[in-house]
Design a protein around this nucleic acid. Structure first.
Lengths: 180, 180
DNA sequence: TGTGAAGCGGAAATTCCGGTTCCGCTTGTG
DNA sequence: CACAAGCGGAACCGGAATTTCCGCTTCACA
């Protein structure tokens, strides 16, 4: 593969990640191409179709988040701190895209397991955080994960915006305010 | 107007309200017709186009919520209680639709003022609730309204679901849990 | 530096999908 | 009964997004 082509491919992926993180899954091929400063034709040289591009990006995001979760689960004493780290990480990832792809019927074979693993991981952390007494226990770990997803799987989500802050505070049993 | 036609019109509106409340603004004419058990042609007999149907429904929802807000603002001692009443009311209304319509460029002339009035009303209540000490004051009244909108302007929102509860708790300075 | 394969741009073709129209049939009403 | 009003839903239409295609450009190697 020619050097400029490899460079272009990376450029496309990087740009698309940014765009999809900021504006969600409905960014068009045209928009992505334009943002990357290339023609649509170039997108199709590197990816057989839209779905392939989106799946690669979604899988990347999920892998990143899963790794963060594992990492912090292993390193952190507190499960709640690990969850916070996940939220901070996830807020900069195109998770709305990942969600919409894995919701849709059949996806890339890699996507399903990734989502499943991630979900299990987070639910585990949530249950742990409740056991620690950091998170209110009048809702299920599943619901906790659902709420954190609301915070993260939003186009343009930021770890310190009002909604994320309020959700974290609402989940937490401590009085402290997170994120700001 | 023939009696069956009047009945049908009401059926269409009622069904559409339910559907739009549950699934958001992107329900198609086809879907609405099907849910109401009529053909699309019947929709177009009663409304010149999609926009007209949607605007009528959105305006109705906004009027309902505005009335609730005024009512409780007048009746309640506590501004926070009035806000809670609004959230309970709004959760069963197709507000996601109303939001998307009033976001779009020019809408029904009635929609703009309704949204403005409602916004002002809620912001006022939010500021009052902060003055009472019921709502945290490290965020602006505008942001408070924005967060309540997140709770309400969601397809399928319920006043006692996990997200609404956590947002209300996150906003509140009291330890109590609202809605469940 | 010349050559040709690889890569690129973007206009045009195609596909998709929802809104809207239309007309033959049905139903309510005087 | 007559006939206007109402209805259903297939067909049509248009816009928007995806995908193709081909002439032009750029890279990389001799």
């Amino acid at each position: 593969m020619r050097a400029d082509a490899r460079r272009n491919r990376a450029l496309i992926v990087d740009t698309a990640v940014d765009l999809l993180t900021a504006r969600g899954p409905e960014a068009s091929m045209e928009e992505i191409a334009q943002a990357a400063g290339v023609g649509v034709g170039t997108l199709y040289r590197h990816f057989p179709d839209r779905r392939a591009l989106l799946e690669e990006i979604a899988a990347g995001a999920l892998r990143t988040l899963l790794e963060t979760a594992r990492d912090h689960a292993a390193r952190s004493v507190s499960r709640w701190d690990a969850l916070l780290a996940c939220v901070r990480c996830g807020a900069g990832l195109p998770l709305a895209l990942a969600k919409s792809l894995s919701d849709g019927a059949e996806a890339h074979p890699e996507l399903g397991p990734l989502v499943r693993d991630l979900d299990a991981m987070l639910e585990d952390l949530a249950a742990g955080a409740q056991r620690e007494g950091a998170v209110r226990d009048d809702i299920t770990p599943r619901e906790v994960v659902g709420l954190l997803s609301v915070a993260m799987c939003r186009p343009g989500a930021r770890a310190d915006d009002a909604l994320t802050t309020v959700i974290l505070d609402g989940l937490s049993t401590r009085a402290a305010s997170f994120g700001r």
